Simulated assay, not measured.
Amino acid sequence: MNLALFDLDHTLLPIDSDHEWGQFLVRIGAVDAASFARRNDEFFAQYQAGTLDPVAYLEFALGTLAGFPRAKLDEMQAQYMQEVVLPAIRPSARALLQKHLDAGDLVAIVTATNHFVTAPIAKALGVEHLIAAMPEIDADGNLTGKLLGTPTQGPGKIVHTQAWLAAMDKKLEDFDSVHFYSDSHNDLPLMSIVSHPVATNPNAQLKTHAAAHGWPLIDLFND
Rank of each mutant, 00 (worst) to 15 (best):
M1P: 03
N2W: 02
L3C: 10
L5V: 08
L12S: 12
L12R: 03
S17V: 01
W21E: 00
Q23A: 10
A30G: 07
V31M: 05
A37M: 12
R38V: 13
R38Y: 05
R39F: 04
N40H: 11
E42K: 11
E42H: 13
F43W: 09
F44G: 04
F44N: 14
A45Q: 11
Q46Y: 04
Y47H: 06
Q48Y: 00
G50I: 05
T51S: 15
L52C: 13
L52E: 10
F60N: 06
G63L: 12
T64F: 06
L65C: 13
A66L: 04
G67T: 03
P69E: 09
P69A: 11
P69K: 04
A71Q: 14
L73W: 08
D74A: 12
D74V: 09
E75A: 14
M76Y: 15
M76W: 14
M76P: 10
A78V: 09
V84H: 02
V84W: 03
V84G: 00
V84K: 08
I89T: 07
I89R: 03
S92A: 15
S92N: 10
S92L: 13
R94H: 13
L96D: 08
Q98N: 10
Q98P: 00
L101P: 00
D102T: 04
A103W: 00
A103H: 06
D105M: 01
A108S: 07
A112K: 05
T113A: 15
N114Q: 13
N114E: 13
F116Q: 03
T118P: 03
A119F: 04
A119L: 10
A124Y: 08
A124M: 12
L125C: 11
G126P: 01
G126W: 00
V127C: 01
V127D: 00
E128L: 09
L130G: 01
A132P: 01
A132G: 02
A132F: 01
A133L: 03
P135L: 01
D140R: 12
G141A: 09
L143P: 04
T144A: 06
L147V: 13
L148I: 15
T150A: 12
T150H: 10
P151T: 05
T152F: 03
T152P: 07
G156S: 02
V159M: 03
V159P: 02
T161S: 05
Q162K: 11
Q162C: 06
M168R: 15
M168S: 14
K171E: 15
L172I: 07
E173N: 13
E173T: 15
D174I: 10
D174F: 11
D176N: 13
S177Y: 08
S177N: 14
V178I: 11
N186L: 11
D187P: 02
D187Q: 10
M191E: 00
V194F: 01
P197D: 08
P197L: 08
P202S: 04
P202R: 05
N203D: 15
A204K: 11
Q205P: 01
Q205V: 11
Q205M: 05
T208A: 14
A212S: 13
G214V: 00
W215S: 02
D219Q: 14
N222H: 10
D223H: 09
